[in-house]
């Protein structure tokens, strides 16, 4: 059970200090999550901390490979263009 950072990461560091397991480390070309340390914050927090502070849509995936912050969910830019996929849960709109 672990989350994954993919190449849309902009290396902004926001996730590093909020990880309760020190699982996130600087790497090239972008930060990575140590799968052995990541607990998806279960037991520590209700929400995965890295995904809750990440400003980039689609940069953090869950263990199924789904984006925790899907397109349009943070910037609202797609929202205004009417392109928000219907798969996005209501509570993050």
């Amino acid at each position: 059970m672990a989350l994954e950072i993919i190449d849309s990461c902009v290396n902004c560091w926001a996730c590093v200090p909020v990880c309760p397991n020190d699982a996130i480390y600087q790497a090239q070309p972008h930060f990575l999550i140590d799968a052995d340390k990541c607990t998806e914050c279960v037991g520590d927090h209700d929400e995965a901390q890295c995904a809750s502070i990440c400003p980039i849509e689609g940069a953090i995936l869950d263990e199924l490979g789904d984006a925790l912050n899907p397109p349009g969910s943070l910037t609202g830019i797609l929202l205004s263009a009417g392109e928000l996929p219907s798969s996005i849960p209501q509570d993050i709109r």
Partner: peptide, 16 residues
């Protein structure tokens, strides 16, 4: 101090 805890509409966090 790279990390930020809010998003402002005038900021793009890809700052490099």
């Amino acid at each position: 101090a790279p990390a930020c805890n809010i998003q402002c509409h005038y900021c793009n966090r890809k700052y490099d």
